[in-house]
């Protein structure tokens, strides 16, 4: 199977996507290339197949490729479409894995580079004394990884209804008695909703809730998918179908329609929703790649995953907390306060 490394036409070093300039840079000769330049290079390479044809072999669900740069083996799983050679660090793209249905229609390129992601993480960790050192360690933060995550963007036409009970409460005073009158109403609401581009993560490896929390992405930045965007990042292809994803989307829509219809129940002191439902009448999905920075931490045998939206910088995840540090700080404060309080108390008494 074909393995592509986007190489600098000047020095043959690997090219990586620069999220700041939105161009492809060679870190060795400092050349920079536009998308059109890479397309030309790709056309030439397709016309003249490389001499070193790559082999692939299946090993218990994993695929084995050869790095076009150093010839070392690159082992990936079925869904990985872009990675790095473990030996020479060469970024590689596996284009055959994105043929046909697996070729994304669009991509949101990374807007934040690794340096910005690390800086954001340092800022987050600053003056947070309960974070364990293992996490705030520079060497650990260096491990933050950029990955293109497959998403389905769903357009949905929805009919929804809601039934509720509303209460209007009025109160007045007469003599030494307070009167409270409650008027009860049955509320009926039905409406049509049109949703555009509701994202749902299409990778089994990614935590669905975490990916949902990374939203929003700005889909105005969506670009037509080109293979070179993946160079320098990890990337996964979808392994959750749009039909499976739509179940999760439906739940989100049900919640949203309920909220929206509830908002129309105005001028009531209290509203109790008794039932609500939402039916997706028509739906359409688009396969896209969205940029995410990930940092995995293992602390006290527990896994912590930190994620950052590669476009907006929004951060989600759980960060570890050092319990011994909390005890130490609490102990210092308690002892210092006791000593100072005792001295002060004796002086004042």
């Amino acid at each position: 199977m074909e393995v592509i490394t986007y190489q600098c036409p000047n020095c043959a070093a690997p090219l990586e996507f620069n999220s700041e300039t939105q161009k492809w840079d060679c870190k060795f000769c400092l050349s920079s290339f536009e998308e059109s330049d890479l397309q030309k290079m790709q056309t030439q390479e397709t016309a003249e197949p490389e001499e070193s044809e790559q082999d692939d072999q299946e090993q218990t669900g994993q695929k084995c490729y050869f790095c076009p740069n150093c010839g070392a083996e690159i082992v990936t799983d079925e869904s990985t479409v872009a990675s790095f050679c473990t030996f020479c660090g060469n970024p590689v793209v596996l284009p055959k894995k994105m043929d046909g249905l697996f070729r994304p229609q669009q991509v949101v390129p990374f807007q934040l580079n690794k340096e910005q992601a690390k800086q954001a993480l340092y800022q987050l960790c600053r003056k947070k004394p309960l974070l364990p050192r293992d996490f705030t360690d520079k060497a650990h933060i260096e491990k933050v990884t950029g990955i293109y995550v497959p998403f389905w963007l769903n357009d949905c036409y929805v009919n929804a209804n809601l039934q509720a009970t509303g209460e209007r409460v009025s109160s007045w005073k007469k003599g030494d008695t307070q009167y409270t009158k409650t008027d009860v109403y049955a509320l009926f609401r039905t409406g049509s909703f049109i949703y555009r581009d509701i994202p749902s993560d299409a990778s089994k490896k990614m935590d669905d809730d975490m990916m949902d929390a990374l939203e929003p992405f700005s889909f105005e930045e969506l670009k037509e998918f080109q293979m070179p965007y993946l160079s320098g990042y990890f990337a996964q292809r979808y392994d959750v179908s749009k039909e499976e994803c739509r179940e999760r989307v439906k739940k989100r829509i049900e919640q949203s329609t309920k909220e929206k219809l509830r908002e129309t129940c105005l001028h009531y002191t209290a509203v109790q929703v008794s039932s609500s439902s939402a039916d997706i009448i028509k739906a359409d999905s688009k396969y896209v790649m969205l940029p995410v920075w990930l940092l995995y931490t293992k602390y006290h045998s527990k896994d912590y995953l930190f994620a950052m939206n590669g476009q907006t910088g929004k951060m989600v995840g759980e960060l570890p907390m050092s319990i011994p540090k909390a005890f130490l700080i609490g102990g210092i404060i308690a002892v210092a306060t006791t000593i100072l309080g005792t001295i002060g108390g004796l002086l004042l008494c």
């Binding site: 947070k128 309960l130 974070l131 975490m210 949902d212 939203e215 989100r252 989600v316 995840g317 960060l319």
Partner: peptide, 11 residues
């Protein structure tokens, strides 16, 4: 302590 909001964005 940095507890990042993992709340889902409303549809």
């Amino acid at each position: 302590h940095p507890k990042l909001s993992n709340n889902q964005v409303s549809a």
